[in-house]
Structures are given as C-alpha cells and as structure tokens.
Design a protein around this nucleic acid. Structure first.
Lengths: 244, 244
DNA sequence: TTAATTTGGTGCAAATATGAGGAATTGATT
DNA sequence: AATCAATTCCTCATATTTGCACCAAATTAA
C-alpha cells in the first residue's frame, strides 16, 4: 500500500481512532485539528486521500472540499455528525467520494478507503496500456479473453463455437469443483430450456476434441458431471488422441 | 445525461421507486427481477451503471458483482436489507462502488449515482489516451475527427454516411472488445433490446466495402457480433477469420 | 458372471447465422 | 413530381452449429 492520508477533525479521539485503524492497514496518516491546516499542507504536498469532518473550527468541511477540488481529483471522504439528506447531497455534489455519519464503523471506513483507492487505480491504470486484469482467465495453456471473446491454446488462437466458449469459460472459472450436468444446462442453456440432458455431453465431447492436445482435460465425474483438471502423463498414455 | 442504468431487485416496489426517481433525473432505467437476468442483458449490451440487490432469487448480488467485474469496470451500487459490517466490506472488496442499507433515501441514492458517474468521467476523461484533446480518434490508417465529423483513410478524405460514421466511431472507441449486435442496435439505432433486425449487418456490410483497402478490418464473432481489428497479410488473400 | 445404467463416438439432419445482391422505402432537395 | 442518396427489407446461397438417434464401450450393481 504505502498511501498517504490526511485527516481533518477537531475531535482528537476520532482522529486517533481513524489513524490507528488505518495504520494497522499500512496507510500513513497525518491528522489536522481543522480544515485550514489540512488545506495548507495539501497545497504544499498533496496526499493520496483526504478525510474531512464537516463541522470544524475555521472553514467547514464543504469549503475545504471545494478548495481542494479546484486543483485536484484526490479521493475525499466526508464525516458528519448530522444525518441529513441535504448535507449528503451537498457533499457528493461538491465532489466528495463518500459521506459517513457519526457514529460510524471504523472498519467500514477503512474498507471504503481501500475500495476508493483501488477504484482510482483501476480507472486510471486501465485506460493506459496495462495488460493485467484485462478480463483474461486461463487454465493450463488455455487463455480466454472475455472482452474479445477469443481463446488461445499455447499462444495460438483456436476457434470455439458460442456454446463451447460458454462451457469452457464456465469450467475454467469453476476449476476447483465438479459441475453437474443440470448445473451446466442451467448456466449455459438457460433455466427453461427444452433440450435433452445429453446435449451437455455433446458440447463436452466437441470441446474435448479441440483441447485434446492441451495441458487441460475434462474429466468425467461418473453419475454426476464434469470437472476441468490438469492433464497428467498417464492421461496421455490412456486416452491418447494425437490426431486433430 | 442520457446514461443507461440496470437495476436488479426482486421487490417491484423498490425497482419502481428507483426507476421513478432516476428517470426524473433523465437516466434511462431497465429493471430486472433477479441478478441472472441482469447479467445476461449486461453481457449482450453493457450499461453505464448497475444497481444490485444482494438477496435475490437465483444467484445473489455478490455473485453477479463478481461476474460483471470479470469483464468490466462499470460502476456498481449494492443494496441490502441487513446492515452488517462484514457484508459491507465484502461488497466493497469485490469491487462495488457503494453499499446502501434498506430502507435508504432514494434522494441520497440518486445523488450517489450522479456522483459516481461524474467521478468516473473525471478520471477516465483525464487519463484516457484514446481520444486526443482535439477530438481525433484513429485506428490503423483511419482517422476520425469528431468535431468536424469527417474521416480520412490514409490521409485521403473518404465519405461516410451518418450510420456508417456512427458505427465506425463506436467500433474504434471500443476496439478492445467484441460488440454484440444487440449492443449496436441499442447504442447506434436506439432500438429497444431484443428486436430482431439485421440493419446492423447491413451497415457493417457497406462499411466493410468502404474500408476494404485499409489497414483495418471488421471481424465477425460468430453468434455474437463484431470487432475492429488490424488487417493481417493473410486477410488480404482469403477472408480467413479465426475468431471464435 | 450377467444385467442395468451411464457415458462416449459417429453421423446426419434441422436449426441458425451470415453475407451478397438487389428491390423497396424513406427523406431531403430540386 | 422527379431525383438522388441513404437506409431498410427481402430473398437466396452458403457455412456453421447444434441437437438427436443409434450403437459401442465403460461402470456399477446383483
């Protein structure tokens, strides 16, 4: 983590409470007894996230919020003693990210802080050229791009029909468990479909042929369904299909 | 505004309440009685924001949240009946943007929706490298000027009809993913979802002819839709599409 | 062991998806 | 009214996918 957080609240107890919770999660925190002090510090040295009480000596939290927003998009979370719709709306309209009413759960606040920071990273990092977390899922030497709906096997693109694609995607995302035929029918063919139960076997069959020379294998759970597993050496010897 | 919002909640009253409040603010809303229906619709035609109840028939809100997050960063707001720290944290950890406990203030929710959308725009708008500040977007040797609504191919101006222009612009700005027919119909023709028409194919057909000697190509994702890709050497000879 | 049940493979026909050409329609402009 | 461009609709040809029947092989139960 290693993010820096500024907190402005005139109540020492609340500042310290927040600091201790946040530091436990490896955030660095600096507390300020009023908003003006925070604002001055911020303009000299910006931080990664701001927590602002609304009612403080000097300028109130809304004013500080507005001032920061003139120059920055830093995430800002507001704290307030009174639970009023109007205040809530004003806070959000002015550009804060969230609004907590006292007394609040410090655990929730910490969670919110993390979430807001993560969101920020996702959005700003994503539109650049980051390759990670682009909706890619993989198993063995199979990679599926859920955005482009393309699949590759050992780096080579290989074609999948819509049903095969849905089935393989489902198997990969549930690699850790066996999946029953009825579940497959529900998930891939839909809840109210009129096809025979064996159609799942059909698609499994076709998929097996296509991935026959990959590191993955669809194993049968007798009397129940299927599960995606790694292919072992013995598999190759037994059910060897080296053709294409 | 003109943003599209999907709402999943099994309680008709809540859905309608939200719809009426949101539509009053000029959002377009579509309600779903459960999360699975929303998920299916979303995968065919994404929206700008999602509101998910946690407890629903079928898969619960957390599951739907996870599924959507596999392919998308769309803002998601969770609704729940029980006010538990653990749930709150789980929701945020899984990537939701906020968490409202019932009964909640619709006014606050609407305010939150606006705030989240605005935040998203601020962040992506400022960091996106796709569109330069002079309104130019490009792909391969195609350049589109969104201000003058003119296009050039390899430096030469080339004429596009209004529909072709809209389609090409949409394909270029979503170059990183496959786009379904229903999404095209929704976004470019404004048709309600689930209409069976092949106008999109028609426009794709004409557009393909026009860009036939450019570095870009519209590839078909069988059973789903289209995607704009770079033309490779092999493409020129035969219309080989190894897409799934 | 035999019998009953479940699963896997082959082949085929029906259903579905796509692309091309051209006709019909719409809408704007003479 | 006539014209023209743009769009939509229609039909046909073709390609692909999918469900199902049938039988063989595998597994379990008795």
């Amino acid at each position: 983590m290693d993010k820096l957080i500024y907190i402005a609240d005139d109540d020492d107890n609340i500042r310290n409470l927040l600091k201790s919770f946040l530091e436990r999660e490896n955030f660095r925190c600096i507390g300020f007894p009023n908003g003006d002090a925070l604002l001055e510090q911020y303009s000299n040295s910006p931080c990664d996230l701001v927590i602002l009480d609304v009612m403080m000596p000097g300028h109130d939290g809304f004013y500080i919020l507005k001032e920061i927003r003139k120059t920055s998009n830093v995430p800002i979370i507001m704290l307030t003693a009174k639970d009023s719709d109007a205040d809530y709306i004003q806070g959000l309209d002015l550009g804060s990210d969230d609004y907590f009413t006292k007394p609040f759960s410090p655990v929730k606040l910490v969670s919110k802080v993390k979430s807001v920071l993560k969101r920020q990273e996702d959005l700003t990092g994503k539109t650049s050229a980051k390759e990670t977390d682009d909706g890619l899922i993989s198993f063995a030497d199979i990679v599926i791009n859920r955005k482009t709906k393309e699949a590759t096997l050992a780096g080579e693109p290989f074609p999948l029909t819509p049903n095969e694609y849905a089935l393989l995607t489902y198997l990969i995302s549930n690699r850790d468990r066996a999946i029953s035929r009825t579940e497959l029918l529900d998930k891939i063919w839909g809840y109210e479909t009129q096809v025979e139960t064996r159609v799942a076997d059909d698609t499994v069959k076709r998929l097996r042929k296509k991935i026959s020379h990959s590191g993955a294998r669809i194993s049968t759970i007798w009397g129940y369904g299927f599960r995606l597993v790694m292919r072992t050496d013995e598999d190759g010897a037994e059910g060897d299909d080296s053709d294409d």
